[in-house]
Write a protein that binds this DNA or RNA. Structure first.
Length: 679
DNA sequence: AACTGTGGCCGTGGAG
DNA sequence: CTCCACGGCCAC
């Protein structure tokens, strides 16, 4: 209450009701949700055949249900020609059925005990298959607890959450799960998030001994459930908080993207205040785009990225605007109905760098909603999450709220620039970005005026070198007074190394930890051998404090890299460590302009009978064969093109050595790559 | 049917 | 050989 009242006090009158409303809603305790995960296995003629849920022509041979109440059951079909085997399923109660009909009946009955059913891809497969299979076996609608929508399976008595769609949500993936997984499969997500895997086996699932099949199926249900239970049920908590903010049922928000959450939230607010919801035609008729984008194919000009000053800079403070775009929406009163408003007296209220004006008479609905949510995150929930001991109920709640608000706030400006959003209003989006550029450039000017050296900046951040704490604090005060926008001291680096490249730097913190941004050496598709080498070299170099340290480190790096290039030439590196892992983003036939390397590899895979679809990660190695690449699974060690890998290593390390080289030029005779690779 | 945005780096493929 | 579009992944 204390913190909330302080926030209310510092807020303008129009925002106070929103602060009250949001905080009383969001601070409600989080419910425990009774639920069970469900996974099925279907007989299949061979390992490459994926049974069609619509036809459901093959038997359901195993089902597992893993409940939050501790009940865990495996339902197995006895098949005369299959042995039981001697696998153990320790945790679960194992039930055998002579007839598939009885198995399904028992499964349906068990499902009725749980108000929430959790699956991984149940919309497309598990529940879809169960429904059609039951129909094929003569079950009537009233005994099947499943309804099918176009792309969705519902359960009649409760809520079905399909985690596949939840974890595929890009905004959650990046901002909540920190891009820890790339592929959206159950195995990839589980390995990245809960350090669990699917059970591996060779051949066709139908050939497994019955108990081994049960063990496999149960494990899938178990890890699916764990995705909702790890870290104190964080996924369930996220769902609850998103539902509260977005005013949307669990079933929808788990399947829809952030833009739909924001639409739902905005529409709700219109109804609450008895405002008419405009048609999208009305909104887009308000104005057109003025700026031109830097990137071809984009609609309007975005953020400003400063040229980094190449070299090593010591004692670098990073200033950044707290939640910049939502702050701009709030402070500049940006909303679809305030931009280019009808009042002649507002026409002088021009948005910097644009011809657009904005209303002076009243606050816009977006400004109020996004502005208040921004304040709640920055001034209430983030500090509150830190105030309570980690793991306490309060810290857990406030962290969840904070994460959800981060996701929604990050998308809140972008939605106005996408046609699919029903309140699409490009002047709002481009004005937000334009003010962002204006603010950061004004801040750079102010730094220069105060003789503070700016060495880099991107969108909402400025890297300043050699400034003391006092100077940084004065800049923060200046921003508050002159810009009306909150600037924070994000962190202070012991040193930062820039090459000439934007979005690419190494920063070393006082405790010795380092921050790497943008380097090829840390990208998810880079082969493991190069990625490992890159991190090891950074580790060696980050310990350098003096000239003699550096000489020793340089020798160590040289020896280390030489070892790797030798192994490469002698074909001693396992293929798995040489794999590039690149996602195929669309069906193979849609690559019409060019045939990138991962597509070449995928086409080779298809010729061996494997199916490839959008979203799959293709593992390939560079070879001396005609295509220049081969899928990892089809390549032989002697086909590896060692020179290609050495080239790739060189350019990977060039980003790093370029940055370090400028400063250490005098210290060592040369930092040319050749010294490292062939000296 | 559903889909937040722009800026930037890198390697490759295809055209001339 | 040069040039530049494409495609993927990342920063913010």
């Amino acid at each position: 209450r204390e913190e909330r009242e302080a926030l209310e006090k510092s807020s303008k009158a129009e925002f106070i009701p929103y602060v009250k409303m949001w905080s009383s809603l969001l601070t409600q305790p989080l419910p425990k949700i009774k639920r069970a995960s469900l996974d099925i296995e279907v007989a299949s003629p061979d390992e490459y055949h994926i049974p069609s849920p619509e036809e459901a022509e093959h038997q359901v041979i195993a089902v597992s249900i893993y409940g939050s109440d501790g009940r865990k059951k495996v339902f197995l079909l006895k098949r005369g020609d299959h042995s039981l085997g001697d696998s153990k399923i320790d945790e679960a109660e194992v039930l055998f059925f002579e007839k598939e009909e009885s198995l399904l009946e028992a499964v349906f009955l068990e499902m009725l005990d749980y108000p929430f059913i959790i699956t991984y891809n149940g919309d497309e497969f598990d529940l879809n298959y169960l429904y059609h299979r039951a129909k094929n076996l003569g079950f009537t609608e009233d005994v099947i607890p499943i309804n099918l929508g176009r792309d969705q399976a519902w359960i009649k008595h409760g809520v079905h959450i399909d985690l596949y769609k939840f974890f595929a949500n890009h905004a959650l993936k990046v901002y909540v799960f920190e891009s820890k997984y790339v592929e959206n499969t159950l195995n990839s997500v589980c390995e990245a998030i809960i350090n669990e895997s699917k059970i591996e086996f060779e051949g066709s699932i139908s050939d497994l001994p019955i108990l081994e099949l049960g063990r496999y199926c149960f494990n899938d249900a178990r890890i699916t459930y764990m995705l909702t239970s790890y870290n104190d049920d964080v996924v369930m908590r996220l769902l609850v908080v998103i539902a509260r903010v977005a005013k949307m049922p669990f079933e929808d928000l788990g399947r829809l993207g952030v833009s739909n959450w924001i639409r739902s939230l905005m529409y709700f607010e219109h109804r609450r205040i008895n405002a008419l919801i405009p048609t999208s035609e009305e909104v887009s008729a308000r104005g057109t785009i003025y700026s031109t984008a830097i990137t071809k194919g984009k609609k309007y000009r975005g953020a400003y990225v400063l040229e980094p000053e190449a070299g090593v800079h010591f004692n670098v403070a990073v200033l950044d605007f707290a939640s910049l775009y939502p702050s701009i929406i709030k402070v500049y009163n940006l909303s679809y109905e305030t931009i280019l408003c009808g009042h002649s007296e507002c026409r002088s209220n021009i948005i910097p760098e644009t011809p657009h004006w904005v209303c002076k008479k009243r606050y816009g609905i977006t400004s109020l909603i996004i502005g208040s949510l921004r304040d709640l995150r920055v001034k209430l929930y983030k500090p509150l999450a830190k105030k309570y001991p980690p793991g306490s109920d309060q810290a857990v709640l406030f962290n969840t709220i904070s994460q959800v608000l981060k996701v929604i706030l990050n998308a809140s400006y972008g939605v106005f620039g996408t046609e699919a959003f029903p309140l699409y209003c490009p002047p709002v989006a481009e004005s937000t970005a334009a003010v962002g550029r204006y603010l950061i450039l004004k801040t750079v000017d102010e730094c220069r005026r105060r003789n503070i050296k700016v060495v880099y900046g991107d969108t909402d951040s400025l890297f300043i070198s050699g400034a003391g704490k006092g100077e940084a604090e004065k800049m923060i005060e200046w921003a508050e007074e002159d810009l009306g926008i909150e600037l924070d001291l994000d962190k202070v680096y012991k040193y930062v190394a820039f090459s000439k490249r934007k979005k690419n730097y190494l920063g070393v913190l006082p405790n010795g930890n380092f921050v790497l941004k943008g380097f090829t050496g840390k990208k998810s598709n880079t082969p493991k051998v190069i990625k490992d080498a890159f991190y090891n070299v950074v580790g060696i170099l980050s310990k350098v404090n003096s000239q003699s340290d550096f000489e020793a480190a340089r020798e160590e790096v040289k020896k280390y890299l030489k070892g790797i290039t030798d192994d490469l030439r002698k074909k001693k590196i396992p293929l798995a460590d040489l794999s590039f892992n690149v996602m195929i983003s669309k069906d193979l036939s849609e690559y019409v302009d060019t045939t990138p390397q991962h597509v070449k590899a995928a086409k080779q895979l298809e010729r061996t009978g494997r199916k490839v679809k959008g979203g799959d990660i293709i593992s390939f190695v560079k070879t001396t064969t005609p295509d220049g690449v081969k899928p990892t699974s089809l390549a032989k060690p002697e086909e590896i093109d060692a020179n290609k890998y050495i080239e790739y290593m060189k350019s990977t390390f060039e980003q790093l050595l370029d940055a370090l080289g400028y400063e250490f030029d005098e210290v060592i005779a040369s930092t040319k790559l050749e010294d490292f690779f062939w000296a």
